Computed example of a mutant assay.
Amino acid sequence: MASSKHASLHDVELAALSAAGDRPAFGELVRRHGSAVRGLLRRMGAQASLADDLAQDAFLAAFESIAEFRGEGTFSAWVRRIAARLYVKRWRKDGRLEFAQDLSDDSQAEIGSGGEGAAASRIDLDEALKGLGETERMCISLCYGAGLSHAEAAEALNAPLGTVKSHVKRGLDKLRSRLAPPEGGSGRQVGQSSGADAHG
């Protein structure tokens, strides 16, 4: 269990202590970021029990390679990328990949994963994601939840880059339609900057 000393430290400091063998420091990182990792896995399509298992595996993998984390990005983004790749491996092993299109089309929209007043929007987004095709949801989650570039997502999925871009584009179009405010109302606009660290 992390101590109050650990609770006041920055993630980079906790990672450095973890690399030196301080398990309570790593426990604090798990406490801080566990729900975000599980949330990403759920959005990617994992059932609750599988999300819990893969999140645990992701943190174990992160602990084993913690010396590789040097603070260039956030720890949260780093461990989410590990978790996303683990889920992709499971997804591919289950033979669930169905890439039918190979259309190149850039898409630079962003889907937020947190921030001020994000709870209601996140619930709406989670529901909208459930309405996407499995492959579209996977591609969008990799690019805008785990922060992978289109090229990195294509590599992880072992799919053509143009195909991934096409699935992202179509999925984002559907999300924009589903999350659009009613006439005269105000609502969440998918495609506006909201703190995600994805890039194409």
Rank of each mutant, 00 (worst) to 15 (best):
E98K: 13
E98A: 14
E98L: 08
E98N: 14
F99D: 09
F99W: 03
F99V: 15
F99N: 11
F99Q: 04
A100Q: 10
A100H: 08
A100R: 15
A100C: 04
Q101D: 13
Q101V: 12
Q101W: 06
D102P: 00
D102G: 08
D102K: 08
D102Q: 09
D102L: 04
L103K: 12
L103C: 06
S104I: 03
S104W: 03
S104R: 10
S104H: 08
D105C: 14
D105M: 15
D105I: 15
D105R: 15
D105G: 12
D106M: 08
D106Y: 09
D106A: 15
D106V: 14
D106H: 10
S107L: 03
S107R: 14
S107F: 09
S107H: 14
S107W: 11
S107Y: 13
Q108P: 00
Q108W: 07
A109N: 05
A109G: 08
A109C: 11
A109R: 08
A109D: 12
A109E: 09
A109V: 08
E110C: 09
E110M: 06
E110L: 09
E110N: 09
E110Q: 15
E110P: 00
E110D: 11
I111H: 00
I111K: 01
I111M: 06
G112T: 05
G112E: 04
G112M: 05
G112C: 10
S113R: 15
S113V: 13
S113Q: 12
G114A: 04
G114D: 01
G114C: 01
G114H: 04
G114F: 01
G115P: 02
G115E: 02
E116F: 09
E116I: 08
G117D: 04
G117I: 02
G117C: 01
A118F: 12
A118W: 12
A118S: 14
A118R: 05
A119I: 03
A119N: 05
A119Q: 10
A120T: 08
A120S: 07
A120D: 07
A120I: 05
A120H: 06
S121A: 13
S121I: 06
S121N: 09
S121T: 14
R122M: 06
R122E: 09
R122D: 10
R122W: 01
I123W: 02
I123S: 07
I123D: 07
I123T: 12
I123Y: 03
D124W: 00
L125I: 09
L125T: 07
L125H: 00
D126S: 12
D126V: 01
D126I: 00
D126R: 11
D126K: 06
D126N: 08
D126F: 05
E127M: 07
E127S: 11
E127C: 04
E127A: 13
